[in-house]
Simulated scan of single mutants.
Amino acid sequence: MSPARPVIRRRARTWVAAGSIALLAGSLAACGGDSEKTGSVGGSTSPADDKLATAMKLLDSYPVPTEKLGGVDSVAGKTIFYIPITKQAPQFTTTEKTVTAAAEAVGMRVQVCDGKGTPTDIGGCIGQATDAKAAAIVADAIPYGLAGNGLEAAQKAGIPVVISNQVPDPAHPASKTLTWVPVPGGEQQVRLFDWIVSDSKGKANILVNQSSDGPSPASYVADGKAALSKSCPDCKLTVNKVTSSNFALIPSSTSAALLKNPAINYVDSQFEQYLQPTQGGVQQASRTDIKVVTGSISLGGMKAVKSGSLAAATAQAAAFQGWVNTDAALRLILGKPVPEYSIPTRLFTKDNIGDVDLTEEAELSGEWFGPETFTDDFKKLWGVA
């Protein structure tokens, strides 16, 4: 299906100077849990507090690559297949729309196929792209091992593949037909835990609903746990594994974990697609005292932070990533080197959400993270401005 073209208006704004920030997200997840003591701060303040202010600020500018790309006129009329692991994740809707806007800037089309969180559907989408002789495939949050045969077949057919939102797989390094656009998901988890340490004054007992699809989500939580063990030796962390392929189990597994450990006072829904069933589990356990946080939020999650039903959240610059994914695809199509990319994220709480324009237009423009000029910057790189 072809998504509707986004209308992105630009408005003049005064941008707050800020340091660089990078946090973020990944893919999907089963049930079960393991609990262990990790690490706190010895008083009412924490070293994490010094990082929070930076993580909450706007960027001075987006990290747009500098390597110009010629010859894009040759791709006009061709098609990029955008395949998110599941469209249940709201962030992928934003990326889908901006991949489409970026592709249209060079005269290309975008075909979207929902992976639905299952190997069968993901494989079917990749097969469809191969049969259609797509110019490129952008696989969002899809672990290579989950669709290895299809990805290999596509590349053998001369179709380059961009894998976004995943930790690069060392068994499948970047090549002339494959590139990775990783995101610092571990930093997202670290920042959420930093906020929890500060808010709890070093006395947090955390339940994290961690995605179990592929290696990336577990890697992100491991990074967060390592940082937590240093900043908060008195904090505790329980991991409950969840999956987008069976949302029906998430409320009951969350409730069971909370009933098993009544000392839990914070719940982290790793990605926003798990937020609603996670909050359902908190309600089933009748725990009105728990603060809930999440990562990879979109407009709905931002509004939840504004209303107070969500205590803190990180959001990925999904609009910017749409243009990055298209840039990577164009470079592979044209046989050019692919630069290293950095995808910004930002921490949102009641302290900074009031300054955010909570509209779809603002989300698509990228203004939640920094200046809206990055789209023009990419067009200049491609010679179509």
Rank of each mutant, 00 (worst) to 15 (best):
S244G: 15
V16H: 13
P337N: 04
A76Q: 15
A89I: 03
A22S: 15
N209H: 01
A319H: 08
A135M: 03
T54R: 15
F320H: 06
N209F: 00
V324D: 05
W382P: 12
A25Y: 01
F271G: 09
G366W: 05
S255R: 11
K291H: 14
A318I: 00
I126Y: 00
D355F: 10
K379N: 08
S229R: 14
I264K: 02
D73G: 14
L381D: 06
K133L: 06
T94E: 06
V112Q: 09
Y274P: 05
A30L: 12
G280S: 12
V338N: 01
T254D: 06
A226S: 13
L259H: 07
S231W: 11
D289R: 01
S200N: 05
V75W: 07
G383F: 06
A102W: 08
G150T: 02
D114H: 03
A129Q: 00
Q155G: 06
S212R: 10
S229N: 14
I159K: 02
D169S: 11
I126D: 00
V338W: 01
A53H: 13
A22C: 09
A22K: 10
L249T: 15
D376A: 13
A218K: 11
N205Q: 11
L23Y: 11
T179V: 07
K68P: 05
P371C: 04
L237F: 14
L358K: 07
K230C: 05
D377N: 14
G366E: 09
S44A: 15
Q279N: 09
A312S: 10
D289F: 03
A132N: 07
A263S: 12
L299A: 07
S46D: 03
G295Y: 02
A263V: 00
A153G: 14
E67V: 05
D376L: 05
R331V: 00
F378G: 03
A204L: 00
K380I: 08
A141T: 06
V293I: 10
A22E: 15
P217C: 09
G115M: 08
S252A: 11
T79W: 07
T66I: 10
V106R: 00
S365Q: 04
G127Q: 11
Q189K: 07
L192Q: 00
E104C: 05
E67P: 06
L23G: 14
R9L: 12
A101D: 10
V138L: 12
A139Q: 07
T45S: 13
I142F: 10
D169T: 02
S286Q: 13
L178F: 04
F378E: 03
S212L: 08
Q321P: 01
A129V: 02
S2T: 08
Q276G: 03
A319L: 03
V64G: 10
V16K: 15
H172P: 03
G202S: 04
Q321H: 03
G148E: 14
C113E: 06
K37P: 14
S255Q: 10
I137L: 12
N149C: 01
P47E: 08
T98E: 05
G186T: 02
S255K: 11
E367N: 06
A89K: 13
V41A: 11
E372P: 03
L249I: 04
P84A: 08
N205W: 01
I196M: 08
T375G: 03
A141D: 06
S216R: 02
A103Y: 12
S40P: 00
G301P: 02
A385V: 08
I142V: 15
P337D: 07
A248Q: 15
A139Y: 07
F378N: 03
D49N: 11
T95V: 08
P143Q: 09
L364G: 08
A304S: 11
G202A: 09
A318S: 13
